[in-house]
């Protein structure tokens, strides 16, 4: 199957990226733009970078690539400040320099033959799906985005790529439909060629239990603790039906039916 964004990618590089801006999106979440031409040129949707954070954070933090600018020099990250690494990162100022390694991982496998796709974003799982939506639209693919959050504190839909169909969910009903975003998948599954999901693990558990999704092309992006991001430390190993795989190197994108889900509960 021909693919738009799969296949062996450009090897990652370590580079210095100048911060262009870092602004809050909602309480505790931030949009960080950096100038990183080498990463931007090589990046495919679903890939990530390892970012060195200052302060007391010892290890790098994996951040998925949220967008690549039209000019091709700039990438952005959408992240939550949830600990000492990301807290430090959220205080970045224009002109600061970040040490980043990327692009890393496999990325989504978007087929050139796809006519219509569904993207399912739970919370900050939106981050890599916006990049995918942009690439899909550029290739003339119809894009449905189901976006669910806890409340109406969420990404401004005016910032989403043009020409996509947005279906909104909130846990509390303050925006769009009340309920979980995964509820919409069965309704789309007959009319879309591919489904791409990113969000917290319970979303994947829910989808993995739905019998009518068996055998469908559903790709998910996993997040685990990582140390190296390069496939050498084996911190991020998970079990799949094809044996053990490393989220950083073999993933972070996997087929939904590829993961041994009952082994994932502890992660």
């Amino acid at each position: 199957m021909m693919a738009i964004v799969s296949g062996p990618g450009t090897p990652p590089t370590q580079s210095k990226a100048e911060v262009l801006s870092c602004n809050p999106v909602t309480a505790g979440t931030y949009l960080l733009r950096v100038n990183a031409p080498a990463v931007a040129a090589a990046a495919r949707p679903g890939q990530f970078t390892m970012v060195k954070c200052g302060g007391d954070a010892f290890l790098r933090r994996p951040l998925s690539i949220h967008r690549v600018s039209e000019t091709g020099a700039e990438i952005s990250f959408l992240f939550a400040a949830i600990g000492k690494g990301t807290d430090w990162l959220s205080a970045s100022k224009p002109g600061d320099t970040l040490d980043i390694i990327g692009p890393l991982g496999n990325g989504f496998d978007l087929h050139v033959s796809s006519r219509e796709i569904l993207l399912v974003a739970g919370g900050l799982g939106l981050a890599p799906l916006v990049f995918l939506a942009e690439r899909a639209r550029r290739n003339g693919i119809r894009v449905n985005l189901a976006y669910g959050t806890a409340s109406d504190q969420r990404y401004d839909k005016k910032l989403l790529p043009e020409g996509i169909r947005l279906v909104e969910f909130t846990d509390d009903g303050t925006c769009g439909r009340k309920g979980f975003v995964t509820e919409c998948v069965p309704g789309f599954i007959g009319s879309v060629d591919q489904v791409f999901v990113c969000g917290p693990l319970p979303m994947y558990f829910a989808l993995s239990k739905q019998q009518n999704l068996k055998g469908k092309d559903i790709q998910i992006s996993l997040e685990t603790r990582m140390a190296c991001g390069l496939g050498v430390c084996y911190a991020c190993s998970i079990k799949t039906v094809d044996g053990q795989k490393q989220v950083c190197h073999d993933g972070p994108v996997f087929r939904l039916d590829e993961i041994v889900w009952n082994e994932m509960a502890g992660i």
Binding site: F58, Y234, A235, C236, S237, G266
Partner: peptide, 23 residues
């Protein structure tokens, strides 16, 4: 060897813990 179950690492002050388990 498959190694140990997750999580396999934890960040600590000026370092880290690992329990990969010789995968």
């Amino acid at each position: 060897r498959e190694g140990n179950k997750q999580p396999r690492i934890a960040e600590t002050p000026s370092g880290m813990l690992n329990a990969i388990g010789l995968q």
